[in-house]
């Protein structure tokens, strides 16, 4: 991934900034230009709470080429306490914690790098709490 493509999303990947539709209140993560619920086009920025719960999960045992070194790794759909849902890796989980309903908190982690000499892409992973 080129560095501008990664950099563009720092407000979300680093700080969990969401957009709240001023018309209907729906919280969008990532932000959008038009609300898919009410078609509103005005938003305010909100930093989401870092906590949520697992809605579904898996363990990816064969990763894509840029994640080949990390396999196997756990992934989940997480519903954040502020409403939006995200897909992210689950890190540092113990037996019994990769389950539907498990509470998690997002932590700042390396997601992948562009080889030993390329940029490092950081973002969020869910850690059971």
């Amino acid at each position: 991934m080129s560095s501008p493509r990664s950099w563009r999303h720092y407000p979300q990947r680093y700080r969990y900034e969401a957009a709240v539709c001023t018309k209907c209140g729906k919280v969008h993560f990532p932000p959008r230009l038009i609300c898919d619920a009410c078609k509103g086009r005005e938003f305010t920025t909100k930093t989401m709470a870092r906590t949520g719960k697992i809605l579904t999960h898996t363990i990816v045992r064969v990763g894509p080429s840029n994640f080949a070194d990390q396999s196997p790794f756990a992934v989940a759909v997480v519903e954040m306490d502020d409403g939006p849902r995200i897909t992210c890796q689950v890190a540092d989980w113990n037996q019994g914690q990769l389950t539907i309903g498990q509470k998690v908190r997002l932590e700042f982690r390396k997601i992948y790098d562009e080889g030993a000499s390329g940029i490092i892409n950081y973002g969020y992973k869910a850690v059971p709490i």
Partner: peptide, 9 residues
């Protein structure tokens, strides 16, 4: 950006 970036297949 929001799925594959995180390694999901």
């Amino acid at each position: 950006e929001w799925e594959a970036f995180n390694g999901i297949t």
